[in-house]
């Protein structure tokens, strides 16, 4: 698809805001539904990491693993969610990147996420890279890459929810 035929940046912003809102409202089923059937949520361990097959990642989840995580988060006896995690996402600096060669549209953005659980407020920041595949009038996520600026730092708490 040539850039001239791409929808306005506003359309992509709304898509990203919606996925963030679904996470913040713990509406994970609808969030997972944004992904293509072979879609992947990837949080690399290293900045600039290209290879998820030969090196470890913080998250590398297809729909099966996402479903397992969500089922646990909702489980009445998920002790680590008592009290539950709350999040607020802010997404900005949305820009179109060159495609990934598969015909997907690549959208990059910056995020900050405030995460609160049991008296502790944490702050995450980083970059999203969304590989979006056209599906009717909207898109489905082929890949959501989440680069935390502290990905290879020491992690103070377990990351229970999707960032």
């Amino acid at each position: 698809m040539s850039p001239a035929k791409l929808p306005s940046i506003r359309v992509f912003e709304e898509f990203l805001f919606r996925q963030a809102d679904l996470l913040d409202s713990r509406n994970w089923d609808d969030w997972i539904a944004l992904f293509a059937d072979d879609g992947v949520y990837w949080m690399p361990l290293k900045p600039e990491q290209q290879d998820a097959e030969n090196y470890p990642s913080i998250f590398l989840e297809d729909k099966a693993l996402m479903a397992a995580r969500v089922a646990r988060l909702r489980d009445a006896n998920a002790w680590g969610q008592q009290p539950p995690t709350r999040t607020v996402h802010l997404i900005a600096n949305v820009r179109l990147d060159s495609g990934n060669g598969n015909g997907d549209i690549v959208v990059r953005s910056n995020f900050t996420v405030a995460e609160f659980r049991r008296d502790v407020l944490r702050h995450h920041a980083g970059t999203y890279t969304h590989h979006l595949r056209r599906a009717g009038k909207s898109f489905r996520i082929a890949m959501q890459r989440v680069d935390l600026i502290n990905c290879d730092g020491v992690h103070e708490y377990n990351l229970q929810v999707f960032i």
Binding site: D62, A68, V70, A71, W79
Partner: peptide, 26 residues
């Protein structure tokens, strides 16, 4: 402690049997 993860894994194996088969973690 891990009953929620075990139930989560079961849910995933039922809903996405092909994908779940790739994950020895589940």
């Amino acid at each position: 402690v891990h009953q929620s993860s075990a139930r989560g894994a079961k849910t995933a194996q039922q809903r996405f049997p092909a994908g779940a088969a790739n994950h020895i973690s589940l």
